[in-house]
Design a protein around this nucleic acid. Structure first.
Lengths: 197, 197
DNA sequence: CCTGAACATTGAACCAGTTCAATAAATTGG
DNA sequence: CCAATTTATTGAACTGGTTCAATGTTCAGG
């Protein structure tokens, strides 16, 4: 139940058995069916969820009604709307399970309690956010500097298991183009090969 | 010298006079002339710099040689390549003063020392990165959902002082389009007004 | 095992933003 | 204060990706 997450946090900081145990007591396990919205636009996000099993998508619906997928999260990832969670303000995001999922939840109160009791966790969460930030920076750069083909090839290279788990039009919305165009890119790649270097 | 930054950190967490004083001892003041590169691609970033006075630009040069401006930082902002700084790995970024600047520097060693001596700072930096992350998330969404006109209007609304301080083509490279096109957007706005709602 | 719904493909017309090239304006420092 | 360089504007031709609509495919649930 907790082995994955305990390994996860021990990668950043050294904890004693007692600390780990206390941490585990504070976590709430939850099983969520497929296609369930864990958070909707306008709500305040009251969790940080560590995924033990499953696949979860975070997305945004823009003023024109277009869905933008921000993240596909699978085993050993966290999902949350960090801004909403910490500042207790309305989220702009939707968070939705794509598969039946098992998550370990932390509420704002529990997280505060944890940070208060075991301040070493400040570091765990700082490192976690730092990693998030650098990943988002990379993604941002990629978004503005590469073509659709490059984005797609990089995506299947970086997340080889995702295309088998999620519908293709969600991937298009993650990569920032229309489902039709992703389809065209794929046929172009499989036909022409497009290797040219 | 330190009043701005002390106020800055006290906004997040309550510190004692002694803690603040120790913090100030650890900071290194530096004056940097205009147009100086503080960091170049390939180097490891060895500072987190708080800007007391001046204007600093962070940018990336993509494989095709195009500059992408990531951030304009002015008074009361931090600049660094956080990923490079913390993981001691080569940066992909350039950091350059646009004006003569006065900065307060923290090296990785000093930062570690600070965090070790006064663990409350973990929280300051976590909050700082969190703010960074939510800002970047917003920017990312904006990048993929809005048109050039909207991006430009939002920019001058959000950072009204920047256009007077930096050349226009840097702003274009921040907003993600060509300098020529920004120019066209501006004339279109000033002529047609483009109010249509 | 069948049916409806969700998903994927294809093509034609279209558009936001790019590129290139030429000219004009502003800034800077010697 | 002038020359050199950097910055901004404008126009014409172009392109990567969108939109819309029609057709084909897959898959989950009753």
């Amino acid at each position: 139940m907790f082995s994955l997450i305990n390994e996860h946090i021990n990668r950043c900081v050294d904890f004693t058995g007692a600390e780990i145990q206390r941490f585990n007591e504070l976590l709430v396990v939850k099983h969520i069916p497929k296609k369930t919205l864990m958070l909707q636009e306008g709500e305040v996000c009251n969790f940080e969820a560590y995924i033990n099993k499953g696949c979860i998508r975070t997305y945004y619906i823009d003023p024109k009604g277009v869905e933008i997928t921000l993240q596909f999260a699978i085993e050993d990832w966290w999902v949350s709307d960090i801004g909403s969670f910490h500042e207790r303000k309305a989220s702009k995001l939707f968070i939705q399970t794509l598969e039946p999922s098992e998550v370990l939840l932390l509420s704002p109160e529990t997280k505060e309690k944890l940070l208060h009791e075991i301040p070493k966790f400040e570091r765990v969460f700082r490192l976690m956010i730092q990693k998030n930030l650098t990943r988002l920076q990379d993604r941002f750069l990629q978004t503005v500097t590469t073509t659709a083909v490059e984005k797609y090839l990089d995506f299947i290279d970086r997340y080889p298991t995702i295309p088998q788990r999620v519908p293709q039009h969600y991937i298009a919305s993650y990569l920032g183009f229309s489902p039709e165009f992703l389809s065209k890119v794929r046929t172009r790649l499989s036909k022409g090969q497009d290797v040219h270097e």
